[in-house]
Simulated assay, not measured.
Amino acid sequence: MPDSKGHQAEQLAARYLQDHGLSLEASNYRTPLGEIDLICKDQDQLVFVEVRYKANQAWASPAESVTRSKQLKLIKAARQYLQQHDPAGHLSCRFDVVAMTGDIKAPVIDWLPNAFY
């Protein structure tokens, strides 16, 4: 998320997940195939997180904006990350979405573990 509200949303999401027991491994992991906003660990599981922020939900919720096309890009980027960081394939992983709405200074946060596969 290149804009300042997007960056704020990612920082808030990282803190939220850390407050809920996850550890932050990386942020804004970029590949030619796509970008992963946050990469966390939840015990022995790697968690690839897409962060979405919308001030309002007039047309769709932030979570609904993670289309199947976007999911496939995230999956491809995650595969590349795993090839570099877990070549033996020992880590299990999942894809979460952190959706935020409202005022960016105090958003409503909806964490969706295992949002897609």
Rank of each mutant, 00 (worst) to 15 (best):
S4W: 14
S4F: 11
G6W: 10
H7M: 00
A9S: 06
Q11T: 06
Q11D: 05
A13V: 06
Y16P: 01
Y16A: 02
D19V: 05
G21N: 15
G21F: 13
L22G: 01
L22H: 01
L24G: 03
L24M: 06
L24K: 01
A26P: 00
S27Y: 12
R30N: 09
R30F: 11
R30G: 07
T31V: 12
P32E: 13
D37L: 01
C40D: 01
C40A: 07
K41Y: 04
Q43E: 06
Q43P: 04
D44W: 12
D44I: 04
Q45A: 03
F48R: 14
F48A: 08
F48P: 07
E50S: 15
E50M: 12
R52S: 07
N56A: 12
N56V: 14
Q57D: 09
A58H: 13
A60S: 05
A60E: 10
P62H: 08
A63V: 09
A63N: 07
A63T: 07
S65Y: 10
V66F: 03
R68I: 10
S69V: 15
S69E: 15
K70P: 00
L72P: 07
I75D: 12
I75P: 09
R79L: 02
L82G: 06
L82Y: 11
Q83L: 10
H85C: 09
G89C: 07
G89W: 07
H90V: 14
C93V: 01
R94K: 15
R94G: 07
D96C: 03
D96S: 00
D96T: 00
V97H: 07
V98Q: 00
V98K: 00
A99M: 05
M100D: 00
M100F: 02
T101L: 08
G102F: 02
I104W: 03
I104S: 04
K105V: 01
K105Y: 03
A106I: 06
P107M: 00
V108Q: 15
D110C: 11
W111N: 13
W111R: 13
P113W: 06
A115P: 10
A115W: 11
Y117V: 05
Y117A: 12
